[in-house]
Design a protein around this nucleic acid. Structure first.
Lengths: 342, 342
DNA sequence: CTGTTAGCGCCTTCAT
DNA sequence: ATGAAGGCGCTAACAG
């Protein structure tokens, strides 16, 4: 039962239209070297037979799949979901499809997924958010497929092109806001310091800000979490219940920052009257909380879009003027801090 | 410059290992019919030459791409991002990759993307969240590629398999919570009534709940938005500033519900003391707001996972016992309503 | 257990 | 402007 739809090929169309398959191929691919009448004949035959080109066969013959691979930590993070939207929009614009893979930031998964993507003959690869190790480089360098890093970077020489923001500087400016508000005890809610992409650089920015303002970094005011709301909540709660509790908190991402807001509130205090809080990223949540969260607005969508655009340039072998793009961020001072401008 | 890495094929490996390509193919595909020593020879050659199988060629020859297409409204919605995570996890488990496409719920895009995915010879297709029209059915029925609907359904005869929840019933139960709290003026924050997947059924549930409890549906207490936070905020604000303002609100999704919470608070009132609010979906935001949002917990991840699992069964031609899956939901009563159990 | 031989459906010179 | 023919790299019978 369920009679298999016998696949109809370019050859069938050719026969039906009374031309050669080369001609059919030409009209399908928009080659101008086809007489209008011939083209019409072919188009009609295609229409009549319901012909659907086989992209796999085309890929094998042409060595192009119009597909790019995207290795991402976790699509369920608002940050990466937004970024992916930027990628996909630009990909669509250039007629590429994306194969999406979640790596959970696990090196082994990243490597394995990258391999799988290359086997699938993707025309390009977007690598998001993971640390680039020698093993990564070995794979990246061992292929002609262009690779662009997004929301991460590789400091190594001969590094891959990337699109990101200046994490340290942004973190420093965020901390500066708190300093200028006059706070002397500024808490820090971070991620793993072993994370070279977010955790460490944002910590570094915090530290530099304090140091440049002659303030000492007190380890007791540093708490490390996993970037999630609850870890932010818990860490902030600890901080606030300690002696010498901070009067301001810089959280390295918005989820943790919102957790901190609620920790403050649950303790019967107020933001920003009692404790100022600033986050990082500017995910939708930041403007869906009371008070509205002050934060570093990271152009998530743009990072994805620009990275994808850059990748298309490599795939088309266009000349690249700028292969290491540092996008601007912006301080978005809302209601969880008192300072309204800097 | 940039000497092209000459692609090394199964044929090269065969020569290097001193066997035929068929044998190489066998070891690459884990065919047991290979003598251990031979296998080792081949494996060594593969290792030595850095051979990477070409999945496109394999796809053409085997007519399987181990790739499934996913048409989704918008990956940047928490709801769909979560669902996609479920899809991808199960896909990975069964060694499939997913090609992700955002449709923005536009019919034309959905159709065009579906076509493109079929051209790419995906082994299966997951269609999320859009309304299924005759044009969709025409494409779906015109191919042997199995199609599973997720978070949507098609009432038509000979319909596609689907995985979803009972929207009407869930909406009714959510409204019931408010009714049992004794509210007589229950506002409704909905989506377009022309949306047959969310907007209409959830409205219907609201209406049925009222009717079954002998309450009349007052159109003045119905506000329609676009599912986003701000539209929820604005609509709730209108509702609350009207005469005969509702004392409880059912919002058809969490974003709007949280908008409503803030509208109430910005008006100087309290949730749930002055106004009870219940949402729908249980996205992370629901537990990242104060008060914690009571809502209908939809198993987003599971919908994706189950749909993908179902699809694998079709792709493997396993026998399907249940092709129309209605997953259970759960009322998650937190702090934005007063009733704690039902 | 291993090798041979056809394709899979299409693109792409190269002729005509 | 069109056709003929040779791959693209691999799988899948079918022999042996």
């Amino acid at each position: 039962m369920g009679k298999r739809k016998e696949t109809i090929t370019i050859y069938d169309v050719a026969r039906e239209a009374g031309v050669s398959m080369a001609t059919v191929s030409r009209v399908v691919n928009g080659n101008p070297n086809v007489k209008p009448v011939t083209r019409k004949k072919v188009l009609d035959a295609i229409e009549r037979m319901g012909y659907r080109p086989n992209a796999v066969a085309r890929g094998l013959a042409s060595k192009k799949t119009t597909t790019v691979g995207v290795v991402i930590p976790d699509i369920s993070y608002a940050f990466f979901a937004e970024l992916t939207r930027g990628i996909e929009d630009i990909a669509k614009m250039y007629h590429y499809n994306i194969i999406l893979c979640n790596s959970d930031l696990k090196k082994e998964k990243e490597l394995q997924l990258t391999e799988a993507l290359l086997e699938k003959q993707v025309d390009g690869l977007l690598f998001l958010g993971g640390k680039v190790t020698d093993e990564h480089r070995e794979i990246f360098n061992g292929t002609d497929v262009p690779v662009v890093l997004a929301a991460t970077r590789d400091e190594a020489k001969n590094a891959r092109p990337f699109v990101t923001i200046d994490q340290v500087k942004a973190a420093k400016e965020a901390t500066d806001v708190l300093i200028r508000e006059g706070h002397e005890r500024i808490g820090f809610l971070g991620g793993p310091l072993t994370d070279p992409l977010i955790g460490y650089p944002r910590y570094q920015g915090y530290r530099e800000a304090l140091e440049e303002n002659g303030m000492s970094l007190d380890e007791d005011r540093v708490r490390l979490g996993n970037y999630r709301y609850h870890s932010g909540y818990d860490a902030a709660r600890e901080l606030l219940e300690s002696e010498q509790a901070p009067t301001a908190i810089f959280a390295v991402n918005d989820e943790m920052a919102v957790g901190a807001i609620h920790a403050v509130q649950d303790l019967g205090k107020r933001v920003p009257e009692d404790v100022s809080i600033i986050g990082f990223d500017n995910i939708p949540l930041a403007s869906q909380v009371r008070p509205l969260l002050s934060t570093v607005a990271v152009p998530m969508y743009d990072i994805g879009a620009v990275a994808m655009r850059l990748l298309t340039k490599y795939m088309n072998e266009e000349t690249i003027e700028e292969d290491q793009v540092v996008l601007p961020y912006r301080l978005e001072l809302r209601d969880s801090t008192r300072l309204k401008e800097i």
